[in-house]
Each structure stands twice: as C-alpha cells, then as structure tokens.
Amino acid sequence: MKPSRARDALVPTALGLAAIVVLAQSSGGRAFAAPASSASVAALPPPPALVGADIPKDASPAPKAGEWKDGVPVAITRGTTDCHAKRLREWLRIECPERLGVSLIAGDPKGVQTWMSGDPTKWDEATGRQGHGVALIDLPLRRGQSFIATFLRPVFLYEGATFGEDATFQIVWHDGWADPVIVVTTPPRSGF
C-alpha cells in the first residue's frame, strides 16, 4: 500500500461519509417520523397478543389480499415499533409504513409473501409531502417454526435516497411454547 495515495483518494469519500451521516441523522427524524396519528393510536388499548390456542393447527392457503380486511390486529409482543400486525387464521401480516422494502432473512420461505407499495422517497404533489410507502410480509404461524424478517428505510445520500437498515422482526414459536411471540428490534438510527 502507498499510504499517501490511498489517503488522498479516501478524503473525498470520508468527507462524503460525514455528510451522509449528518444527513441520515437529520432526515431520519424529520421526514420519516412516525405518522401523526400514532399518538392517538398509542392511547388506545393495545391489541391482544397472539394466543396459540386461537391459531389453527391445520394449514390453510395463504389469504388473498382482500381477505386481510378480516384480519384481527395483534400485539407486537416485545419491542416498540410503528409497524402493525394482524392475524387471519394461521397467517400473520406485518405492515410497516414509510419503508423501502422487506425481506425474509431466515425461516422456511414456503408460503411467505412480501409486498411493497408506494415510494416514500418521492415527493407527493397532491399532499405536499413525501410520498407514502408501505412494506408488508405475510407469514404462516406454525408450531415449531421461526422466522426473521428485516425492513429497510430510506436514507439520503448526496446522490439521492438509498436503503438504510431498519426493524428486524423475529416471529418465534418453538415446540412446547403455548403462544408464538413477535419480537421487534430497531437498530440505532444514526447508521445505515
């Protein structure tokens, strides 16, 4: 390595990084704060937690989009988030607003579906604010199975928006557990 050359080459990148971090920190808290309605929602009683006894043991086809209107809201068991969950038969839907995407990271992908609508990075002329985007994932709740899914949020670089790391959901139902749990963790917002 020629340190001086490498150093020279790195300076613009590093300065860019500093600016990126500053931008990410500031934009993360302003444009993509939790929806205004969340305060009032928080005042409502939380939805009930998942109860294993209520969840059918027999597998059924994944619900079609229209069926989810009958889904019952359920609590995110552990952790705090602006995302929402609901259950229909033995299926779970997790829906997160203002996200750029969602991926299943671990767990049996059979029957799992993901969806993305809207684009929160676009300016919505109609509303005069950033556009909306919703990412959601549908998973089967089966005894002895666990899943890990991650969501992505927008982060702004000089070059434009890019993906930032966001909430990780872990849906866990080990053998012998009466009820499944939904654990959510969100990394510190300062990074990607």
């Binding site: 995407g101 993305m116 990075t121 990412a135 982060v155 434009g160 993906f163 930032g164």
Partner: peptide, 21 residues
C-alpha cells in the same frame, strides 16, 4: 427468499457499509 423493494429510479445502491436488500 421473498423480498420486496420499492421500484424507483430515485434509489441509489447503498454504499459498501450500507444496508442491502
């Protein structure tokens, strides 16, 4: 595995240390 991303030309690839779908 199942993965959905926003479809947008506005989105840049993340830097090396950034999040990837």
């Amino acid at each position: 595995s199942p993965s959905s991303l926003v479809e947008s030309t506005m989105i840049q690839p993340a830097p090396d240390w950034g999040a990837k779908p």
